[in-house]
Design a binder for these strands. Sequence first.
DNA 1: CTTGAAAAGAGCGGCCA
DNA 2: TGGCCGCTCTTTTCAAG
Lengths: 151, 151
Amino acid sequence: MDQTDRRILALLQQDASRSVADIAAEVGLSQTPCWRRIQKLHATGVIDRTVAILNPESIGLGLTVFIEVEAADHSPEWLQSFTAKVSAMPEVLEIHRMAGDIDYLLRVAVRDMAHFDDFYRTLIDTVALKNVTSRFAMERVKATTAYPLER
Amino acid sequence: MDQTDRRILALLQQDASRSVADIAAEVGLSQTPCWRRIQKLHATGVIDRTVAILNPESIGLGLTVFIEVEAADHSPEWLQSFTAKVSAMPEVLEIHRMAGDIDYLLRVAVRDMAHFDDFYRTLIDTVALKNVTSRFAMERVKATTAYPLER
DNA sequence: CTTGAAAAGAGCGGCCA
DNA sequence: TGGCCGCTCTTTTCAAG
């Protein structure tokens, strides 16, 4: 993956709806080689998928909550049950297994506090947890899915 | 926005590279009305953009760090300077202004610990901070950009 | 809202340098 | 590798039920 690939990726991370010809022109290639590079980036898993990013407010999911979780115990059974059950909850957009005093960090999208309360009850009902801290986001100052690729 | 729009959005959040005809078939519409709905969802800002999602490991940015920040003070000047300067750092993918004891939560993508150390020094050099806690993600158990739309 | 169709545009592949 | 040139498929618009 060379510098040209990186430039292509940078553009596609910003806007994947642009035509190959368009992107090709911007990176100084003609269509075919540019198209071939993009195919290869897909095939090798560098590009995982292309998706529509929605405005959460417009679909009534304006409340983002980060939940810090400490495991009830650290047995393989608990871990597996936790990840399986929590992964299946649609409000949970992300689950990170963490280093340090917190075992898992969840990122959750809900409608409002009532919805969160609902979710929270379900969560603590579904899996045994030692300690849970919820942090509420008031404002999304920056939110991008684009990794930095300069170099 | 009705149920059909929601179904279209659910599909586009999963895979925005599918053809309109394909999506139309799945939601039980013909091409033209389906296409018009998608245009409208763009125009009204429900669909913000469509982007390529990369595999962070494959581009050498496999280390995700969440940084909890307490502001040095809460003056408008500090807040503005903080958001402007930190937004401009490419490693910072997300900035959330939080409720509670933490003022800001950052989500940062870096190559490795050395890169993080670099980033961290730059961060605390760039803006005055009262307290900073870094939490390191060991494993991405779940990561989706798709908001739940069932209903 | 549907179908059908047609023009414009983009994706895709072969072939040559 | 990259570039040129078609063939094919989609997207996009339009007319009409």
